[in-house]
Every structure is written in structure tokens, then in C-alpha cells.
Amino acid sequence: MGYSISKIRHNMDHEHCLATKTWIRLFKRTGTPTYFERDAFLVDYGQLEKLNNTPSPRAIKSHLPLHLLPVDLWRVQPKIIYIARNPKDVAVSTFHMISDGHKIFSGSIEDYFDLFMDNRTLFAPHYAHVLAYWELRNWDNFLFLTYEQLLNDRFDEVKKIAKFLESKYGEDELKQLTEYASFGNMQKLHIPKNDYQFFRKGKAGGFFDEMTENYIKKFDEWTTVHFKDSDFKFAI
């Protein structure tokens, strides 16, 4: 989905600092590949110079929670797109990334589930991350999307993003863009590292294949408790 946002964004132009960017905010592992920024690791990855030398317009992806956003973001008010995903799929997907991909976690998948619900994972708590951005959903420069919506009707979601970014494309162009940004095409374009495919499954409800009924129940109870005072609900 991130590639489509970048392509849609190309005819926008903001001159000042953060206004040259479309910020794509998401909790870890919601399906959007990195462009120039990866949060606290930006300098370590050697991307800061590349970002500073990239002409407008730019699309920046980050996992940062709301309270850690740059202060200038609120003054300049660039376009911000946030993508939320149900916590069960997030937990499963992140486990495979840190275990099979980065190889920095040696515990079991159940160990990771417990850490996730105990808010002891990177960018946690998941619920606080989502709820904070949900409060901004009615801002003119903010678009709140869900991973499940993007999968359910990719064409309509691409049109929604194009409208939000004030980009003007014909139906045929948007259809081409939708196909380009499809999971299958992204999987073909991505070169796996260390035999790990970043684009692993790309579906909603993949947790059913790897999460026991007991953990599904635990996650559902955990989600109900933390989202009980919000009108935001996950599709699954």
C-alpha cells in the first residue's frame, strides 16, 4: 500500500520542512514497506542524508506513537495517513519479522504473544497507539485507514487516498495503480533478505493459522478491555 501512496503523492508540493512529506503512521507490521525513515533507527540506517537530499514531494513512513511526533508536524500540518491493523495479526506478523527476519527473538510465538499483551514490545502499547491517532480522524490533514479496509476493497481505498492527497487521476490510472500496489505484485518486486520474505501472507485473519483458540480468546478479552471506551472497533 505504501508504494501506491508514494505514487499518488507525486504531484503535491510543499516547500517547508515537514510540509514536503506525507507521513504514513502505523503500528509495527501493518503492511507498509520503508521509504526513507524507520523511526529511531533512521540515522543508524544512514537514511537521514538521503532524506534531506530528496526533492519534494516525499513520503515518510514511521511507527512512532503520537506523543513522539516532531513538534513542527503540528505547526506545518502535512498530510498524515495512519493505518491500523487488528492486534492478533500484528502480533503474529511481528513475531515472524523479528524471529525469522531479523533473528533478534529466540522465544516461542506464545512467548511473544504474552509480551505483546503485557505491553513489552517495540512501540507498545498497541491499543494506545491506535486510539491516539483515532482521535485525529476528523482532522482535515489526517486520514485514518485500516489494513482490513485496504484488503477488502483496494480500488475504493486507493481512490480515497488519491482524493485525500488532492491528486487527480482517471479511473484507468487508478486501476493500474491498484494493481501495481497489490500484495502479489509487491511480493514479486521485493527481494528477500536472508531467505525471509517481508511480504509474507498479506491477508486479514492470518492469525487463525497460528494462534490457538486460547490465545485468540485472550487477545479478544485484552482488546475489549482497552477499547471499551472508544467507538473504534476492529473488523476481526
Results as ranks from 00 to 15, higher is better:
140 D>Q: 12
140 D>V: 13
140 D>W: 06
141 N>A: 02
141 N>S: 06
141 N>M: 02
142 F>T: 05
142 F>K: 05
142 F>V: 04
142 F>D: 01
143 L>Y: 07
143 L>Q: 02
143 L>N: 02
143 L>K: 04
143 L>E: 01
143 L>A: 00
143 L>H: 06
144 F>M: 00
144 F>I: 00
144 F>L: 00
144 F>T: 00
145 L>K: 05
145 L>D: 01
145 L>S: 03
146 T>D: 00
146 T>R: 01
146 T>A: 00
146 T>I: 01
147 Y>S: 00
148 E>I: 12
148 E>F: 14
148 E>S: 09
148 E>N: 09
148 E>D: 07
149 Q>R: 13
149 Q>D: 15
149 Q>Y: 10
149 Q>P: 06
149 Q>E: 15
149 Q>L: 10
150 L>A: 01
150 L>D: 00
150 L>F: 12
150 L>Q: 03
150 L>T: 03
151 L>H: 15
151 L>N: 13
151 L>W: 07
152 N>R: 13
153 D>S: 09
153 D>Y: 10
153 D>K: 08
153 D>Q: 06
154 R>F: 09
154 R>G: 07
154 R>P: 14
155 F>N: 06
155 F>I: 15
155 F>G: 04
156 D>T: 13
156 D>H: 07
156 D>N: 10
156 D>K: 11
156 D>Y: 05
156 D>W: 05
156 D>V: 12
157 E>P: 05
157 E>L: 08
157 E>Y: 13
157 E>K: 10
157 E>R: 08
158 V>Q: 04
158 V>S: 03
158 V>R: 04
159 K>N: 09
159 K>C: 15
159 K>Q: 11
159 K>D: 03
160 K>G: 05
160 K>A: 05
161 I>T: 13
161 I>W: 10
162 A>F: 12
162 A>Q: 06
162 A>E: 06
162 A>D: 04
163 K>F: 08
163 K>L: 12
163 K>W: 07
163 K>C: 11
163 K>M: 10
163 K>D: 10
163 K>E: 13
164 F>D: 01
164 F>P: 10
164 F>Q: 02
165 L>R: 05
165 L>W: 09
165 L>M: 04
166 E>N: 13
166 E>T: 07
167 S>F: 08
167 S>T: 15
167 S>G: 12
168 K>D: 15
168 K>T: 15
168 K>P: 04
168 K>W: 07
168 K>I: 14
168 K>A: 04
169 Y>E: 03
169 Y>M: 15
169 Y>G: 03
170 G>E: 00
171 E>Y: 09
171 E>T: 14
172 D>V: 10
172 D>E: 12
172 D>Y: 07
172 D>R: 11
173 E>W: 10
173 E>V: 15
174 L>W: 12
174 L>K: 08
174 L>D: 00
175 K>D: 02
175 K>A: 01
175 K>I: 14
176 Q>G: 15
176 Q>F: 15
177 L>H: 05
177 L>Y: 07
